[in-house]
Design a protein around this nucleic acid. Structure first.
Lengths: 191, 191
DNA sequence: CTCATGTGAGACATGCATGTCTCACATGAA
DNA sequence: TTCATGTGAGACATGCATGTCTCACATGAG
C-alpha cells in the first residue's frame, strides 16, 4: 500500500528537523524560519510543509520537550529508592534534552498561560512529588518548598545548558554540577 | 541657566521609564515599543525621543542592570567576612534587580557575544573571585568551579524572579530560597 | 501675555519575517 | 519508459513592528 512508503521517498526526517531546530533556537531564540530550515538542511518551503508556521514549530518542540521529560521521568524511576538517587538519575536522563528545555523554559515566559500546560503540569506534579517524597523521608530539608526546588531544577538545567553551549563549563561536568549544587549546595558539608 | 530646568518641564522620568520597561519586558520579552510606552504612561513618540529604538532601550536596560549589579556588589562588601555571609548580603542587595537581571540573562543569549560585555565581565570576575575566596578559605567545596557557581547564581536569580512574578512562590522567601539552595542545597545537613 | 519646550496623537513609509503559490527537478514505483 | 510524490528555488502578497514626520496642545519662563 503506497501510503506506507513515505520513508522510501525523499521525505524529511521530522525528528531530525525538530532536534536541529531545538539546537539552533536554544542558541538564538529569534532565529528565522529560513535559518531553521537551512540548519536542518531543507528549504523554507519544505519546512513550512511540515510545520504550518512558527507557532506550530514551537508547539511541536514543546510536545517533544514534554515527551522527553516524561520519558526521562520513567527512565529515572523517580518513585524508587532514595530521593536523592532518584534526582541524580533524573538529571542524568534529562541531560540530552537540557538545551531544548532551556529554550522552552524561556519561551514559556511569553505564552501567557495558555495551551498545553497540561503536559507541563503533569511533569511539575511528578517533580513536586519527588521532592516531597524526599522531604517526608527526611532526606531533604523542609524549609525549601517542593515548588521552589522544582523551579530551581529547571533554572539550573537551563543555566547548565547555556554554560555548556558557550563553553564556560565542560559538558562532562553537566550532571555532576547540577546534582551536587541542587542537593548539596556550595558549602562544604560539616564533618 | 535654562539647560538645568528640564525637571521643571514635562520631561519624562527616564529612570521610571526604564524600570517600567524592565518590569514589562521581564514578563513578556517580546513586548512592543508601544506597549512599553503605554506601560510607562507615555506615548510611543516620546519613548522614541528618549531611546532611539528598541536596541537603544535594551542597551540602556543592560547598562542599568550592570550598574545595579555593581552597586549591589559594593553594598554587599563581598570582600569582607565569611564568603557565605557575603553571598547572603549580595543576594539580598540584588533582589530588587532580579527581574531585570532575568530579562537580561535570557536576552544576552541572542546577542552573539558582542558589545558591552566589559561590564558583565567585570561583574563575573567579582563573583568568581567571591566564590574562589570561599573555596580558598575552606568554606566552599572545590569540586564545583567558581564559573559554574556564578552561572548557577544567575540562573537561580532568574528562576526565583519568574517564580515570584507568576505567584508560584512568595516574594518574601526570595532571598532565603536562593541563598539556602545555592549554599546549602536541598539535602539535609548531616548532624 | 508671549514664547519656547516637551509631549500626545496620528499619518506615513520602511524593513523584515511570515505565509502562499507556482514551476522545475529528482527519485522511486509501476 | 511513464507517472506520482516530495522537494528546492523563487516570486509574491501580507502583517506587523519599527522609525520618521507633522501638527496641535499644555506648561513654565520671560
Amino acid at each position: 500500500m503506497s501510503h506506507m512508503n513515505y520513508a522510501r521517498l525523499m521525505a524529511v526526517d521530522r525528528d531530525h528537523v525538530l532536534r536541529t531546530a531545538a539546537t539552533l533556537l536554544t542558541r538564538r531564540a529569534t532565529a528565522t524560519m529560513d535559518e531553521v530550515a537551512r540548519a536542518a538542511g531543507i528549504s523554507r518551503a519544505t519546512l513550512h510543509r511540515h510545520f504550518a508556521g512558527r507557532d506550530a514549530l514551537v508547539h511541536a518542540l514543546e510536545a517533544l520537550g514534554i515527551a522527553e521529560c516524561e520519558a526521562a521521568l520513567e527512565t529515572a524511576r523517580t518513585d524508587e529508592g532514595p530521593a536523592s538517587d532518584a534526582v541524580r538519575r533524573l538529571v542524568g536522563a534529562i541531560e540530552p534534552s537540557a538545551g531544548l528545555l532551556a529554550f522552552l523554559y524561556t519561551e514559556n515566559q511569553l505564552f501567557e498561560g495558555e495551551e498545553q500546560n497540561e503536559g507541563w503540569a503533569r511533569i511539575d506534579a511528578r517533580l513536586v512529588a519527588l521532592f516531597r517524597r524526599g522531604q517526608e523521608s527526611g532526606e531533604f530539608r523542609i524549609d525549601l518548598s517542593p515548588a521552589w526546588l522544582t523551579e530551581a531544577l529547571y533554572g539550573l538545567l537551563a543555566s547548565g545548558a547555556w554554560a555548556v553551549n558557550e563553553g564556560r563549563v565542560a559538558r562532562n561536568d553537566f550532571v555532576h554540577m547540577i546534582v551536587e549544587l541542587l542537593l548539596g549546595g556550595a558549602a562544604r558539608r560539616g564533618e
